[in-house]
Simulated scan of single mutants.
Amino acid sequence: MSSIESSRLAFVDTLRLFAAVLVVFQHLAERHPTVTTRPLVELGPGVMGVVLFFLISGYVIPFSVRKGLDPAAFIIRRICRIYPLFLAALCVVAIGGWTGLLDQWAYLADTGLWRWTANILLIQDFVGVPAILGVSWTLIIELIWYALFAFAILAFKERAADVLALVFPAILLGLGLISLWLDTRIPLGRPAMIYAAILGYQVYQFHTGKLSRTRLYGALGVFLGVSWFTNYVAFGIFTHPHITLSQALGPWTIAPLLFFAITLTDRLRTSGFINSGILPLAGTISYSIYLLHPIANAAADQYFAEMFQVPVALALTLILSVLGYRLVERPGIELGRYLVSLKTSRAVTA
């Protein structure tokens, strides 16, 4: 086993933690702006964290199919990875809203079935339904990436990464030109997240000897060029109510450069600082941190004086994330493994 295979989980978990912390910082700084945090928010740390999450996803997902892709097993594991914690988070905000314990979600007492259905299926943004949990918008993009990856592997096999890296930037450029032609803003940032995952996939290809360093750096250059163009169209020529052009261009530049620096520099990737101790350990609960921190923020703002809200929110985020990981997230992962093993054993005995 190569060093990248044996050490990948530790440094990847540290990267995940960093991504989650960036998102948490963004949301806390927006809720509690100060002279110090305002210029930092303009750098778009939350966007950077999400881009980094997708780069990581593109890098790690191929490891799960090194011995071949079983579509049913792949789907089971991915759903059991995403959905249990998400459904648990929805239950928490629903109970909190219905009982008045979390005022931010008090409106859920009068929410109809369609809004719940759209949110549970993660299609709320596509059907014009408000999100119940704001951060959930990334989950459907993650699921789309999983489906696209599986399709590419089944259809193109060893050429999957090359095909995706050729077709997807062309699609994004085409969407940008269509947006200009129609004089209508198209949300190009969301499909670009999938492109970030494809770039992460190319880094995996490099580490497994299937892509040269020259081609990989070329892929990075294409990615930066395409992302600058699409972000300029989506956030420069047109506008977004919450994200400025600088908050888009900066993160889409810094996140891939940081990811490349760590994953391609042996000294950084294998350093004890990011491969041992508290950082990779905390990184194992990064999904819980990402999904549950809005609940902690809402509770802190509702029940504590302003001067205590930020530290309480951070403490509650840690507590909820540890509980979420131990009680829901990890059992969900184990459930996926069990269901796959059960499916495999049935296939053997059939």
Rank of each mutant, 00 (worst) to 15 (best):
V127K: 06
W181S: 13
I95H: 08
R159T: 13
F63Q: 06
L164Y: 10
I123M: 08
D70M: 14
P71R: 08
Y217F: 15
F149R: 06
N119F: 14
F151N: 04
A118L: 08
Q202C: 08
V348E: 14
V310W: 00
G68S: 06
L87S: 09
Y338H: 12
Y290K: 06
L143A: 11
L323A: 15
L281M: 09
I278W: 14
G174Q: 04
C91N: 05
I153K: 05
H207D: 02
P84M: 15
I274M: 13
F53S: 10
K210R: 14
L43G: 01
V129K: 05
I132P: 00
F273L: 13
R330V: 04
R346S: 13
T253N: 03
G336K: 02
P294H: 12
H207V: 00
H207E: 08
W252F: 15
W105Y: 15
P62R: 00
A313Q: 04
V310E: 00
V222I: 15
A296N: 02
H32T: 11
Q205S: 13
L173R: 00
T214W: 03
L15S: 07
M1N: 03
C91F: 15
I198P: 09
R77C: 08
L182V: 07
L175P: 00
A347T: 11
L335F: 07
G128Q: 11
P39R: 02
F235T: 09
R267D: 07
I123S: 09
W114I: 11
A192Y: 01
I237H: 12
H207N: 02
I79R: 01
A300Q: 03
R31W: 06
A109S: 13
L314H: 03
L28Y: 07
I153M: 14
G324M: 11
Y287P: 13
F126L: 15
H27T: 01
R213Q: 12
V226K: 03
T214L: 09
I254C: 06
I178E: 05
A29Y: 03
G209R: 06
T214A: 14
N275Q: 06
L249R: 00
S345R: 15
G225N: 04
L166E: 08
L281T: 12
S136W: 05
G134C: 13
L148Q: 02
I140P: 07
L43E: 01
L220G: 07
L224C: 02
Q124L: 10
Q26T: 06
L180T: 01
L199C: 10
F168L: 12
Y232Q: 01
S7H: 10
H32E: 08
G96I: 08
L264Y: 03
I285Y: 04
V135N: 07
V24A: 11
G128K: 10
M307T: 09
S227L: 14
I285C: 13
I79E: 06
I61D: 05
S6E: 02
A234Y: 00
F229A: 00
E42L: 11
A255P: 08
F53V: 07
Y201Q: 05
Y59K: 01
Y83F: 15
